[in-house]
Design a binder for these strands. Structure first.
Lengths: 200, 200
DNA sequence: GTCTATAGTTGGATAGAC
DNA sequence: GTCTATCCAACTATAGAC
């Protein structure tokens, strides 16, 4: 086996953890399974991480980081408010839909974080990232469509995140793409009612 | 130890499982811990249930059943649409807020159901119950306020469940009652825009 | 740095006495 | 029906050879 600097070894193990956990679930992501996935022996994992919780915390960071590819709205034709908001939400939805296992893993990590004090930060970090991403999305949609929001953006961001989470969870259960799209369309309409043309 | 008919013993063990799992999390709800909670020995659990999964399936039923105390809207003063819908949602929210551990357990059982084929039914049963409860809530609110819905109620029910789930999950993470209430108020407003006076 | 070997728990499940 | 005793598998973590 090749020798690696510890930082690269850690990165490799985090990738392996993400692969196992998103494919087989958080319960299946044992130290053994992760070591096997990475092709290293059990001891290596304990050499690279303080304990399993530290590895899971890094996994939480990794999953949150990959969820926030910035949405590109600039090239929209006829960017009215409804259209811009709809595009932003649809883009995010398609990104999530493409990684079913990762979405489920996100919920699993959140519940773990709510039970295990050692992983508390995973849950809150994920919420913070989601909120920030939603706020940026709303800001960008407003800029592109040349409107402004008539209620505090923090409120709208929170509602959007909650609605998104709920829609994704329902979709994980019943795998109904049409229903999910309809719900997101409803969310888009709702957000649009809280806009007004911005004066220049 | 007192002898009990097996059906009563099962009910007792399910109650114990609910107590342990809602208090300490699904991972802590081992057969051993449940037996201890009920004050019986380990073997008794295996005598009463085929295996652990069967017990968890019954637990799923139990948790779903207790969530659907029917909302009483009849005595509302001046039941306009917004008021009726708001009351229905608030009532349900207060019921959920009072049982934090149970709500978290619900999410844990759902994710388990999505990973473990043996528990698949737990996730879908919970979704079905929630959808039905939401539909009944919308029906009753419409009847009380003398309005009708301008979009298919199935769609509204689904959106309501998703939004509720998302709001509860966010609340579990940050424990912010005010933010939750604000989000639910936003949901109420959104639902109200899809009503129209019903002709008699 | 990496490996094998093993300690030390804890889990689900079962056998057999009473 | 109920209990104790036990089996066996899987887990995290560590010690020590190389």
């Amino acid at each position: 086996m090749e020798r690696l600097p510890i930082v690269e070894r850690r990165a490799q193990l985090i990738r392996a953890a993400l692969a196992v956990a998103s494919r087989d679930g958080i319960e299946a992501a044992t130290v053994r399974a992760i070591a096997a996935e990475a092709g290293v022996s059990l001891g290596v994992v304990h050499y690279c991480f303080e304990d399993k919780n530290e590895l899971l915390r890094e996994l939480g960071d990794a999953i949150a980081a990959q969820g926030v590819d910035r949405v590109e709205l600039a090239r929209l034709a006829r960017p009215d408010a409804h259209r811009a908001i709809g595009a932003a939400i649809t883009t995010r939805w398609e990104a999530m839909r493409a990684h079913r296992g990762v979405q489920l893993l996100g919920f699993e990590l959140t519940t773990q974080g709510l039970r295990n004090p050692d992983l508390r930060g995973v849950a809150t970090a994920q919420r913070d990232r989601n909120l920030r991403a939603a706020r940026e999305m709303l800001d960008e949609a407003a800029a592109v469509a040349n409107i402004r929001w008539t209620v505090p953006i923090q409120l709208l961001a929170r509602f959007s995140v909650a609605a998104m989470d709920g829609v994704v969870l329902a979709w994980l259960v019943d795998d109904d793409d049409e229903a999910a799209r309809a719900a997101l369309s409803s969310l888009t309409t709702h957000l649009t009612t809280h806009t007004t043309p911005s004066r220049k």
